[in-house]
């Protein structure tokens, strides 16, 4: 187990370097001159040179990349200065990540809970009653969920439930713990503000999960050990609970880990439409303004999150499935 975790972490480090390096390369391939933007419209060549030197943009990109890495190491990944400061407003990136990460986390984790709440019962019922009305309804839902783009869904939800019915707030966020003075906050407000974003974010995954859970349950129902359980005289609900569900949901757990990680990327659209001050929104802004340190900060954070979630899920999987030996 320990060996396995060590190996995973080593691999994670390698991946981390690869991902951040590629991000750097892409940034420098974009045919635009960020220095011009930062130095202002009427800058003299001297001003430009000074600006470039100040931001470190006068050096070749591999030197910059090397500095970026060593800063991470010397300041510690979560240190205040580790990620540098923003070209645009000269604020430390780390504090930006700190304030924005909870928003994204709220969206993604809440969304994951939401999609599981939707998908597990629908998936199971449609597996138990194939070709029934519920199963057919679920199929339609799956088709819609898979084909609808989150931006489109978000706009429709906002229009109907926000603008027309006034059931949910439009385009704002409420902090769970300590909201800024004068703004709504606390768990209830938070959930109320997040509800539409969650739904939007969850629908695609809910649709995929209905399909996966349905297939997995149907497959498990035909396993020999389920027949053994019935032959023992177990009532249907016992068979369902301890011989079908547990086994059928095992592979779903791995998927869940990967999808939560993927969801960090998918959060971008939902955050933009609902004006949530999350990481995705920030990353999009930083790309528009060539704010390299912000982009890198988000990339670093997202990569780390993905890798950590994956390791956790793998370990969890080994704990719940006795057949898996992590070596």
């Amino acid at each position: 187990m320990t060996r396995y975790v060590i190996r995973r972490i080593l691999w994670a480090l390698v991946l981390f370097v690869v991902v951040t390096f590629v991000s750097y390369v892409i940034f420098f391939l974009i045919p635009a001159d960020p220095v011009k933007l930062f130095a202002g419209r009427q800058a003299t060549p001297e001003d430009m040179a000074r600006a470039a030197a100040f931001y470190g943009l006068d050096q070749p990109f591999y030197v910059q990349y090397w500095k970026f890495l060593s800063r991470l190491v010397t300041h510690g990944v979560i240190g205040e200065k580790a990620l540098g400061f923003s070209f645009v407003n000269r604020q430390w990136i780390a504090s930006g990540v700190q304030s924005r990460a909870p928003v994204t986390a709220s969206l993604v984790l809440g969304g994951a809970v939401m999609w599981m709440i939707l998908a597990v019962p629908i998936g199971i019922v449609s597996a138990l009653r194939p070709r029934s009305l519920i199963d057919r309804g679920a199929t339609v839902f799956v088709l819609i969920g898979i084909s609808a783009h989150p931006v489109f869904l978000a706009l429709i939800f906002l229009y109907i439930f926000g603008y027309k019915l006034h059931m949910f707030p439009i385009g704002s966020y409420a902090d769970f713990f300590n909201p800024p003075p004068g703004q709504a906050g606390g768990p209830l407000q938070w959930a109320w503000h997040m509800f539409l974003p969650w739904c939007t974010f969850a629908i695609l995954f809910a649709a995929l999960y209905v399909r996966m859970i349905r297939a997995s349950v149907i497959e498990t129902m035909n396993e020999d050990y389920v027949r053994t359980a019935r032959a023992k005289g177990a009532p249907e609900w016992v068979v369902m609970r301890s011989h079908i569900l547990r086994n059928a949901l095992l592979p779903i757990v791995t998927m869940l880990g990967m999808d939560i990680a993927l969801g960090l990327g998918g959060a971008v659209f939902t955050e933009s439409v609902y004006s949530l001050p999350g990481l995705g929104q920030w990353a999009v802004q930083s790309l528009e303004t060539f704010d390299l340190p912000v982009t890198m900060g988000v990339v670093v954070f997202a990569t780390t999150a993905v890798l950590v979630v994956n390791v956790i899920v793998d370990v969890l999987y080994a704990v719940i499935d006795p057949r898996i030996k992590l070596a």
Binding site: Y225, T228, S242, N247, I320
Partner: peptide, 18 residues
């Protein structure tokens, strides 16, 4: 499972692995 029991052909798949 009480008065009538049954065992099956494939012992590899007839027990719940978890």
């Amino acid at each position: 499972g009480n008065e009538i029991s049954m065992i099956f052909q494939d012992p590899m798949t007839s027990l719940n692995p978890v």
